[in-house]
Amino acid sequence: MGTQQLEGKVALITGGSRGIGRAIAERLGRDGATVAITYARDEAAANEVVERIRKDGGRAVALHAPLGQPGDGAALWAAFDAQAGEYAPDGAVDIIVNNAGIGRSSDLASLTEEEFDEVFAVNVRAPFFIVQEGLKRLRDGGRIINISSGVARIAMPEIIAYGSTKGALDTFTLNLAKELGARGITANSVAPGVIDTDVNASWLRGNPEVEAHVASMAALGRVGQPEDVADIVAFLASDDARWVTGQVIDATGGYGL
């Protein structure tokens, strides 16, 4: 078990079935929060996360809530009401973690309008309307944590649209912090660098030269792990971070310094 400093809190985590989202869900669960995770396709993976949290003594539920289509925010909260009522009978939450996203895009020359629209729909529009729909549910003193990326500050033209979505997400965070501060709600972004997840497995794992190169770019000299990000999110979700808002927390291990 964790610190239990989130006991009595309800957390919604989008894209919680794998990678960084899974690590966040498991960490917040260990800290005592009731965790609702969303998934788009892999129900088995989502259920595995739920069972892992429950096995450790926590409370969790998985919600099928694909993102990227008009009305996805409202549909997500409808799924929350339908499936998480046992844990949140009043429909209220304390923590919203916008983690789900498309982690790729093409370069400027080859990017299509369809690809542009898709990555912005999932990475920017969905968090915006999830929060908009969730504001009446988010308790005073709550937390909004948006998972951004180091590419919002590091130029990577080969994934230009993806980087642009994360810059937009950081601006969204800044404005949320200003607007919601009177309610004691904090809003912050966490910006990971290269993290060893299944999304990056095809080019990172099993390739010592690539892994060594990525590690050499970080001041701390290694490839990031999902738990590195989850622990920062846990801090921001806790009362220890009550005086931190409107910030982008770099979680790259000092990449590109």
Rank of each mutant, 00 (worst) to 15 (best):
A33E: 10
V199Y: 09
V244S: 12
D107L: 15
A241W: 00
G134M: 04
T252S: 12
R22F: 04
A88D: 02
E7I: 03
P226S: 06
G101P: 08
P192C: 08
A74F: 05
D140P: 14
E211H: 07
M156T: 09
V49W: 11
G103T: 10
S238V: 01
A40E: 14
F120L: 07
V50Y: 00
F172N: 09
D250I: 02
V97S: 04
A237W: 13
V233M: 07
V214Y: 12
V131R: 09
E158C: 12
R222D: 08
G163R: 15
E227R: 08
R30F: 09
E158Y: 13
L257H: 13
S216M: 04
L108F: 12
G253R: 00
P89H: 07
G29M: 04
D107E: 11
A100C: 02
I154P: 05
A177K: 01
T3L: 12
I24E: 08
I145Q: 01
R139Q: 04
A177F: 07
N98P: 12
I96E: 00
G2C: 11
A78S: 10
I145M: 03
G221R: 01
D107G: 15
L108Q: 13
A109M: 13
V122W: 12
R137Y: 15
T252P: 04
G8F: 14
G184S: 04
S216L: 10
A109R: 15
I160F: 13
T197R: 05
G134Q: 01
T171M: 13
N99I: 05
N175T: 02
S149F: 00
E211I: 07
I96Y: 02
T112K: 14
I185N: 06
Q247M: 07
A79R: 00
A92K: 13
G73W: 10
L138S: 01
V119D: 06
A74N: 15
D72E: 03
T186V: 01
P208K: 03
A155G: 11
A241I: 04
I232H: 05
G254A: 06
N175Y: 13
E26R: 06
I96H: 05
E133N: 11
A92G: 15
A152C: 15
A219G: 04
G91Q: 00
L6C: 13
D239N: 15
G101L: 05
D94K: 14
Q247L: 09
V223M: 08
N207M: 03
T245C: 12
T165E: 06
E118P: 11
A161R: 05
F235E: 04
A251Q: 04
